[in-house]
Amino acid sequence: MIRVTEQESKYNNIDQMEVLDILKGINNEDKTVPLAVEKCLPQIEKLSLAITERMKSGGRLFYIGAGTSGRLGVVDASECPPTFGVPFDEVVGIIAGGDKAIRRAVENAEDDDRQAWIDLQEFDINSKDSLIGLAASGTTPYVIGGLLKARENGILTGCIVCNEGGPIAAASDFPVEVVVGPEFLTGSTRMKSGTAQKLVLNMLSTTVMIKLGRVKGNKMVDMQLTNHKLVDRGTQMVMNELKIDYQKAEDLLIRYGSVRKAVEASTK
């Protein structure tokens, strides 16, 4: 398999470029990423619909990956509870090498094709759940092994990769293949490939949460009130919805703990 993500950069002698020229080159390459994602919207739609159906029946969403891809999955999973008010075990991100690999690379962790399933079993993953494999290369053994075992056990599988036709896509019921082309820095998939994966993850989890009823209008009505900024944001939402002053809105928000509950309690 010839991986586009490993192809030679279109830019030569980068080490001799002026800083502004380096920045322009990176920026020019970054501009191509949303266009590559746009081509995959039908794939993302199918995956979003399938995950939503499973989660409406009590299923959970898991991400597995290594390196940058694994970290992106952990970030997306970690942001779902504060943003949408879901339980912390409803969207789970797992990285090859364990949580210590979030900060420091763990040698050979991505090469073990059995470990992902071991990691997933710690969460009692089952046929109600969905598993998304994240790997820019589309060939990471850790991810392949996890997806294959998940499929054997009736778990819905999907992936977000940046090469077409690889074994991870083949192991996925709903593959998303975002081909962004060679990186500005040859092989550095934390750049365009990582950006593409982050964009798709944003789209995927946000769409699923909207369809699960975690958004009202265009507001995050179930967000956790974990700091002054979010309390203020929530207060503004309650003010606008109930047409009351700031202090009354804040009092309701603090009493009921979420925008949704505050509004529902005041409109019964």
Rank of each mutant, 00 (worst) to 15 (best):
Q121Y: 13
R60A: 14
D89A: 12
L185I: 11
E164H: 06
V33R: 09
R54K: 13
R190Y: 03
L252Y: 07
L20W: 08
G187Y: 02
H228C: 13
E53W: 06
P175Y: 01
L35E: 07
A136C: 07
K248D: 08
P167G: 00
P42E: 10
L120R: 02
V238W: 01
D21P: 13
L148V: 13
M209W: 11
N240E: 08
V92A: 11
R233S: 01
I144M: 07
G234A: 08
F62P: 13
R214N: 03
C159D: 07
E45T: 08
V179R: 03
R233N: 01
S137C: 06
K10L: 15
V19H: 05
R214H: 08
E122W: 04
K268S: 11
L156G: 07
G194D: 05
S78G: 10
C80F: 14
L47T: 02
E250R: 02
I254W: 11
E122T: 12
M203W: 08
N108D: 13
D119P: 00
E90M: 08
A169E: 08
G97C: 14
K39L: 07
L120G: 03
I160T: 08
I160C: 09
E18R: 08
G158Y: 07
I210K: 00
G166M: 00
S258V: 02
K100I: 14
E177V: 11
A66R: 14
K248F: 02
F62T: 11
V259C: 01
Y256A: 14
L204S: 09
C162A: 13
K192M: 12
R104D: 07
I44W: 15
R104V: 12
A66W: 11
M191H: 10
L225E: 12
I51Q: 10
T157P: 12
M17Y: 03
R104K: 12
C40M: 07
D173C: 01
P175L: 02
L72W: 06
T267M: 00
V215P: 01
M239N: 06
D222P: 04
G234V: 07
L41D: 15
G73E: 03
I118N: 04
G181K: 04
L253D: 09
D15G: 14
E6M: 15
N163H: 00
E45G: 05
K268R: 12
E183S: 01
L61Y: 12
T32M: 08
T139I: 15
A249F: 11
